[in-house]
Design a protein around this nucleic acid. Structure first.
Length: 203
DNA sequence: ATACATTAAGCTCTAGACAC
DNA sequence: GTGTCTAGAGCTTAATGTAT
């Protein structure tokens, strides 16, 4: 029997555990949510602003993407610690990302590696490739064992029976095989590229 | 001077709103 | 039901800043 409340409870317990072990209980627990990534391909995210209100108290949001919950425990905990790094930097006024949150800078890497993570560079997104360092991995193995979450949401896009979202986008993409020019049309057409003389091909 | 890190601008694409 | 327009998110890349 799937119980989302149990999953959220488990992530909250993990947050408290990691906050105590890696951050000396310095962080205030945000609103932890589990929801789809919406196609962005992220394992999780942390809101910049305090977007939750509970009895007058404001909270930030930390989300773990529902599609990736059943990854191995070391990967899931690395994601949680990654988001906790952002939270720590926000609290301390350290700007750790730019380019609308895509590029992770060396300040992110420094904070992360001071709190149980090992960070490597991604070609496009900077210092964001996150794994546990050996010490953290050993501690988590000892503390959590193999207690992974055995549930995940199916990816978006036609995998749900009867509930698939019907796209309203009716445009059709064509590409010139010669020069790579892209055009969009609203019905099937036979059209030739004026630069190359090649017929456009449906993408 | 050079390489690497970071940022900002602008292009691409999707999907919603609206007209016909 | 189909076509057109548009906002905004997603993403790339050139420009700029900084360290060595």
């Amino acid at each position: 029997m799937l119980q989302i409340s149990e999953i959220v409870k488990k992530t909250e317990e993990m947050f408290d555990l990691f906050n105590e072990h890696f951050y000396d209980n310095e962080l205030i627990r945000p609103a932890i949510t589990v929801s789809p990534d919406g196609g962005r391909g992220a394992y999780g995210w942390c809101s910049i602003n305090e977007i939750w209100n509970a009895s007058g108290e404001k909270y930030q949001e930390m989300n773990l993407c529902a599609e990736y919950l059943d990854r191995p425990i070391f990967e899931l905990t690395a994601t949680l610690l990654h988001e906790m790094t952002h939270l720590y930097n926000l609290v301390h006024g350290i700007q750790d990302v730019s380019n609308n949150g895509y590029y992770h800078n060396l300040k992110f890497k420094a904070t992360a590696e001071a709190h149980g993570l090992h960070i490597e560079k991604h070609d496009k997104y900077g210092w964001t490739v996150t794994t546990l360092d050996s010490e953290a991995e050993a501690w988590i193995r000892e503390t959590l064992g193999d207690d992974k979450i055995n549930a995940s949401r199916l990816p978006m896009g036609g995998t749900t029976k009867g509930g698939s979202k019907k796209s309203k986008n009716r445009s059709i993409k064509y590409i010139c095989p010669c020069c790579g020019t892209v055009i969009r049309v609203t019905r099937e057409v036979n059209i030739i590229c004026g630069d190359c003389g090649e017929p456009f091909e449906r993408a």
